[in-house]
Nucleic acid binder design. Structure first.
Length: 932
DNA sequence: CTAATCACG
DNA sequence: GACGTACGTGATTAGC
């Protein structure tokens, strides 16, 4: 039948269907071979429901097509190279499913249309226009707002999820203008998802207002001078070109040359045989049965195992049996494992090494697991003689494959894009492999999965996870290597013992993965895991391996000076006290001050001893010399022992640099933690302490570059709590603490004193921490009643803050967690507790979304940074919560600042559009003190 | 091994 | 009405 009057064309936005199916469903895999199949399954279900819903209806289509995007480069990229530039890459699990969705469409006997280099939207637009011109009706099944341009004259949209028809009125409701002016509004408003710039500062609301006033975009731009608002007028005049470009980008192409005609899209009957064969191949049992029922035919039989007979065992209740752990002795056995891994497409892997320091530890063996309950260990460099041999032996033990041979055989597997490598704390193994010339990818990490789901509930180490989720206590490493000074390295462990321990780790990791993978979707943290956790692993690994240069001579000179100062202070202290005692013992200091000298304010701690924290001593120091000297001594002692002494021990003999280790799962809020050594708490607040940063230096011909977010947590607070006054202040670049002080104390900005500003600053920080009168009073050293008065006044001025706090606590009490703007969940198990813990949990719940969102922002920046600076002579070295430190060639510093700043300031987008700008301060110098 | 103290954001 | 509090970390030391 030729398409014409009385015909009804359905156009299905296939690409949108696929993404929706992918994100809505857990990551199902085909049972026989583990092929990811979730999106295909969801897609088929949608098609089935679609067909069911239209069968025999009076409004049934006469013609139908599913239309897909094809190719990533379209004519819009030629117009504007940034078009869709901030799109996240297609998830790895989705990629292989794309061709299967085309086959699925054909299996359902529906026309499947795609054209290389064109977006589905343009094909849909062209078909819709042709159908309309031929006098027929069109329904577009999509919720994509871009397609709303086409509505009218017999063309409607149908949102398949909400099952809502969108006609002319629907479009006007959404855009404030009719379909023919939708393009104009979009051109002005832009689109952060597709990266269409539009007119800065103008959204849909303002855009429709302007278009309605002037009639069209062209008219508006020609008569822009008439606009009253100065900022708007200026934008429209200055950004005219950008707006006109935006229009070209959003304008759908109705005049494509199509290699097919409408007539070819005529609805065809489903062919049961063809469809059921496809569903059987995909192993969709439920859907096959439903389709077979609907068609009134026998459902196909789908075997539980593939023709090769590989049983895929689940983790449930399968016992741990060391007898099923194999020791790999020869290349034939290894090849068997490699074949099995290749066939399956994933493997759990773990490395054993001589130590916990990945920069120095050597590879001792590798364990692998593909099926739960079965695993192997490949010993590589175990020593002969073993633990009992007093002197050990440097001879290699018998029956081991050569390290080089094994690495050569495994390298193609470890680097194969189609084979997923699963680990527990993969950063560690990735670094070990990197030092052996293997770039392991792609990866999954059970530790990070647990963190994404369970932050705040418990730790994420293997022992914790195995006990909680598998009901199994793994062999303690102590049983093999001992502890304390008698500890041995893993290469001295007898191989047979090592097999049981190491293979078990791979087995546990695999079982945890099988359990966690579907849970990620159920808990709705897949995006967090895939965009904030997993991609950070290689970035951190790279930073840690790079390390930062530390000048030992600077440190050792300072250590000497500190030692002298301490000795001198110690003499003075003993003199003042009238006796010798250990100044480093808080208990003895307490006895001297509060016991012997009888000073006021001595409180006893849990252990019954006097407590002597700095703030108490500071109060005493106004009247007495002794506590003042003790405070001086403590400061110097801290700097010497923790920094100038300890840091020297961390300088790697191989690189001359210090390599910290970042713990991705350390802080429940999403922050990183740094250890061995901790480079996130290098002194900066005190003048003396700051000098330690002079020892952190740039290499010859390079400089250190520090970029830090300005007031990021307060900006996020302004956004999430929706405080207009704060937002405006940030937009105008005002001094936020001065502005707060001015609001609170009714002091004009030009009469602001440092003291009033300081108090307002303390309140601003207090708010982020879940303020209390007691805490603020202690911080500001003012009476509690006065502090409470400040807080009351603050909430009066910014009532939105109180609402935010109340809402957050309420949410936590209802759900047991709070969330960041990017969807990270932080569990709050203590929130409904009674007693003193309740206050703690409340404040933590208030703080977590703010601290966590800031942490998410800088993570996003870090993940994007390697690409952004790839062409520049720069390396990212350190992260200190809101600061990134780089080492760059001297002459490229400005360029790097520009590139890195852009990434950092735009890091929230496109996922989140903050109401406040993020700004980044930059500094550079030969050392960290100068750069900061 | 834990508590106390203090370094950072 | 009393209680006990600023949020998040890691390293070092003393002292059991």
């Amino acid at each position: 039948m030729a398409f014409g009057k009385g015909c009804h064309l359905h156009l299905i936005d296939g690409s949108a269907y696929i993404f929706r199916a992918y994100h809505a469903l857990p990551p199902l895999t085909r049972k026989s071979d583990g092929l990811p199949i979730g999106a295909v399954s969801g897609f088929c279900n949608m098609l089935q429901r679609y067909i069911d819903g239209n069968n025999g209806g009076s409004d049934a289509p006469t013609h139908v097509a599913v239309v897909f995007d094809k190719g990533s480069h379209t004519f819009r990229n030629d117009l504007y190279d940034q078009y869709k530039a901030n799109r996240e890459a297609m998830p790895e699990e989705l990629r292989p499913q794309i061709p299967l969705t085309r086959r699925a469409t054909e299996a359902f006997n529906i026309a499947c249309k795609e054209i290389e280099g064109f977006e589905a939207d343009d094909i849909i637009a062209t078909l819709a226009c042709q159908a309309r011109d031929a006098g027929g009706r069109v329904t577009i099944l999509s919720s994509d707002k871009d397609l709303m341009q086409l509505v009218g004259d017999g063309v409607e949209m149908l949102d398949p999820m909400k099952n809502r028809r969108i006609d002319r009125e629907g479009v006007e409701e959404k855009f404030g203008v009719g379909p023919e002016r939708v393009v104009d509004v979009q051109a002005l408003a832009g689109d952060s998802v597709d990266n269409v710039p539009g007119a800065p500062g103008i959204g849909i609301k303002t855009a429709s207002l302007l278009i309605n006033e002037f009639g069209s975009l062209e008219e508006l731009l020609d008569r822009a001078e008439e606009i009253k608002q100065p900022k708007r007028r200026q934008t429209l005049i200055e950004k005219r070109e950008q707006i006109e470009l935006s229009k070209k980008l959003v304008q759908l192409d109705c005049d494509m040359e199509l290699p097919f005609t409408l007539d070819e899209l005529e609805v065809r009957e489903v062919e049961p045989q063809k469809l059921l064969e496809f569903l059987a191949e995909m192993e969709f049992r439920t859907l096959s049965k439903r389709v077979a029922d609907a068609l009134d035919v026998e459902p196909p039989v789908i075997m539980d195992t593939d023709p090769g007979g590989v049983e895929v065992e689940g983790p449930a209740d399968l016992p741990f049996t060391p007898e099923n752990y194999e020791r790999v002795r020869d290349m034939e056995a290894l090849q068997g494992w490699i074949d099995r891994i290749t066939e399956r497409g994933y493997v759990a892997i773990d490395t054993e090494t001589t130590g916990l320091n990945e920069m120095q530890a050597d590879l001792v063996g590798i364990s692998l697991a593909v099926d739960a309950g079965h695993a192997c260990y490949i010993p590589l460099t175990h020593r002969a003689g073993g633990a009992d041999d007093l002197f050990g032996s440097d001879e290699l033990a018998e029956g081991q494959l050569a390290l080089d041979d094994v690495l050569a055989a495994l390298k193609p597997v470890l680097e194969d894009e189609a084979i997923l490598k699963i680990g527990q704390n993969m950063k560690y193994d990735a670094k070990i492999f990197a030092r052996n010339g293997v770039a392991i990818a792609p990866i999954d990490d059970t530790m990070l999965m647990s963190y994404a789901m369970n932050a705040g509930l418990h730790g994420h180490g293997m022992d914790t996870l195995a006990e909680r989720y598998l009901g199994h206590t793994p062999i303690p490493i102590k049983e093999l290597i001992g502890s304390g000074k008698n500890q041995i390295t893993f290469d001295r462990v007898a191989i047979d013992e090592a097999v049981k321990y190491a293979a078990e780790d791979a087995d546990i990791t695999l079982r945890l993965w099988q359990r966690f993978k579907p849970q990620l979707h159920q808990v709705q943290v897949t995006t967090v895991y895939e965009t904030l956790e997993r991609p950070l692993v290689p970035v951190l690994a790279e930073m840690e391996m790079t390390g930062i240069k530390v000048d030992r001579s600077v440190l050792s000179r300072m250590s000497g000076a500190f030692a002298q100062k301490m000795a001198q202070l110690e003499d003075e202290i003993h003199e003042l006290a009238g006796e010798k005692f250990n100044v480093g013992s808080p208990a003895q200091v307490g006895e001297i001050l509060f016991g012997k000298m009888g000073l006021e304010g001595g409180k006893r701690g849990k252990t019954g001893k006097y407590s002597t924290p700095a703030d108490v001593l500071e109060d005493l120091a106004t009247e007495h010399d002794l506590p003042a000297r003790i405070l001086d001594w403590r400061q110097v002692s801290k700097l010497k022992s923790t920094y100038t002494d300890a840091l020297q021990d961390h300088i790697s003999p191989d690189t001359g640099r210090v390599h910290t280790s970042y713990l991705q799962t350390g802080a429940s809020t999403g922050r990183l933690a740094s250890s061995d050594p901790n480079l996130q708490n290098i002194p900066v607040r005190s003048e003396e302490g700051r000098r330690i940063r002079e020892a952190f230096v740039a290499d010859q011909g390079k400089v250190l570059l520090s970029l830090d977010y300005s007031q990021i947590e307060l900006r996020i607070l302004a956004h999430v709590a929706g405080i207009d006054a704060l937002k405006a202040a940030f937009h105008e670049g005002q001094d936020i603490h001065a502005m707060t002080a001015s609001e609170m104390f009714d002091v004009p900005l030009d009469e602001m004193t440092p003291e009033i500003r300081r108090q307002a600053k303390a309140i601003n920080f207090g708010v982020i921490y879940g303020i209390s009168g007691f805490g603020l009073a202690r911080n500001l050293r003012i009476p509690r009643s006065e502090a409470q008065g400040f807080i009351d006044r603050y909430f009066e001025r910014f009532p939105g803050i109180r609402d935010y706090m109340d809402d957050t606590v309420k949410f936590a009490k209802e759900h047991g967690f709070v969330q960041t703007l990017f969807g990270r969940k932080i569990n709050t198990p203590e929130i409904n507790a009674k007693g003193p813990g309740a206050g703690f949990a409340k404040r933590a719940a208030i703080n977590a979304p703010i601290q966590g969102t800031a942490a998410d922002v800088i993570r996003r920046a870090m993940i994007r940074m390697p690409d952004a600076i790839a062409e520049l002579p720069a390396r990212m070295l350190l992260q200190v919560h809101d600061e990134l430190l780089f080492e760059v060639d001297e002459d490229a510093a400005d360029k790097v600042v520009e590139a890195a700043r852009e990434i950092m300031e735009g890091a929230a987008e496109p996922a989140v559009k903050l109401d406040v700008p993020l700004t980044v301060d930059a500094g550079q110098g030969a050392n960290w003190a100068e750069a900061h």
